[in-house]
Structure formats: C-alpha cells, structure tokens
Amino acid sequence: MTGTAAIVTDGLTKRYGGRIAVDRLSMAVPAGQVTGFVGPNGAGKSTTIRMLLSLIRPTAGSATVFGRSLADAATYLTWVGALVESPALYPRLSGRDNLGVLGRLAGNTSRIDQVLETVGLTDRAGDAVGTYSLGMRQRLAIAAALLPDPRLVILDEPANGMDPEGIRDIRRLLRGLAERGVTAFVSSHQLSEVEQVCDHIVLLRTGRLLYQGSLTELTSLHQPQMTARPDDPAQLDALAHLARAQGWTVGVDRDAIVVNGPPATLNRLAHQHDITLAHLSTRPLTLEEIFFRLTQKDGI
C-alpha cells in the first residue's frame, strides 16, 4: 500500500455563508502510514474530516478515498473506521451494545469481542457507557472505529481524556495499524504525540494548507535551536548582540542565549570577539515549536 495515496483532495472547499472553513485544500495522505492532521482550533480539520466521511458536502473541489470519489462514499466508507470529534455513544446502552448498534448496521458483529479486547474494555463491556470515564469512552469510540476491520482509520483527537498509559496504548495501536498496512489519519493537538507516532504531516491554518510532507523533511527545513552560554556571564549581552547582528532571532534563557543559526558561525564570532563559550549545544526543533512558528506567520 505504501507509495500510493489513500486520500487525495483537490481544491476542497467548504463555505458557511461568508466564512470559509476549508479553503482550496489539496493534499495527499499516503497509504499504509500514520499521517498527523495538525492545526489550531478552527483550522478546518474537523470540517475536512466530515467532508471525507460524507457528513457534509463540499462547496467546491473534489476528493477521493482509495480512488473513489466523494459521490461514491457508500463504497469507500465500508473500508473506513472513524472517530469524529468527541466520542459519540449511547450512555444508557452497554459498551457491547453500542458496538452492536454499529455492527448490525454494517452487517457484521463478529469483531465486537476482538475490538473490545484491543482497546482493553472486555471487563467493562457489559456496563452502561454512562458509567465510563472519559478515557474509557474514548477507547470505546476507537473500538467502534476499528469494528469494520478498516483499511483507513480517521481519528479526531484520539488521545483526548486519556491517561498516560492510554496515550501510550493509542501510540502502539497506531503503529500496529501502520505495520499491518492500515492507513491512519490522525487529527491531534497533542503535538508531542503526533511527533512520536506520525510519518507524515498535514498542517492547516485558517482552512488553508500550510505544509504537507514527511516529518523528517519538515524538521530539516528549520534550523535547529542552539543554546550558547558564555564563560563570563557579563558577556551575555555582547554575545546576544553578535547573534542579533547576524539577523537571527535571539532569546535569553537565564545565563544563556537561545538562537536559530549555525553553531559554527556563532562559535567563530564569539572567538573573534574574545568571548569564551562554556556551553554550546544544538537540538532539532520539536514539532510543537515548528507548529507555533508556522501558525504565527504565513509560511515555512
């Protein structure tokens, strides 16, 4: 499956009156990988997901899922499992009956026990969902998404309400799905989680595509963050001045400066100005840092 696209959108647009929720979105989600769908609130992630799930109709543009157009959603949705926004469940029915509702609708109830075990809810399957914690409801909603043995899972904020163990389980689940060739398209605000589990990123802001590609490529597009500490604290301001003169963005963190620039250049400059560096280190930007940079300005 890897190498082909599971989801392709072309100029996909959704307007509500004068407000544009999704603006000419063209993206490709590779098959058999975990793709993170990232953007601030109101970026258009949920609207895009709803269009792909045939819950809302696009105003313009087109999309295909496994080569089938949105008009043929009845065909491709048999291969899709989805969790859209918060877990939507019947609180007075048991966990098992909630899955039974969806299983019967799809004409297949044979996987209910299996998916309950996958999400660790077998012991509570007979209890009313109204007695579940938020994390348990989230697990059950994920079980519902896995029920049709999907080729594509679309999960909107799957780690919401989860404890650290639950988040780790989601991570394992997503990796496990990708290893089996299942495509996972995961919308999330927990960027550290996205970073740990995703191969590919689609980044939206105000309905527009900001970036799509591999996570590695996105990281490499941004200068690593460098921390430099002068041996003599009195030279901190002078060091910061030198860095600013290079056009770099400079921050001061106690007795060190934090800049984005090549370490060799800074080291040479410091040496030329008789500043001895007691510490010089670099680290790649986290997805969260890149995310904030991208969403606070217009481009990469």
């Binding site: 709803r50 799930l53 045939s54 819950l55 949705l77 609708l105």
Partner: peptide, 12 residues
Amino acid sequence: HGTLRNLLVRQP
C-alpha cells in the same frame, strides 16, 4: 449525542 455521525459513516 453525535451518534448520527457514527451511523452515517456505517450507512451513508
């Protein structure tokens, strides 16, 4: 409850 979303994904 938002359950209509789930139903429509399973039966569009």
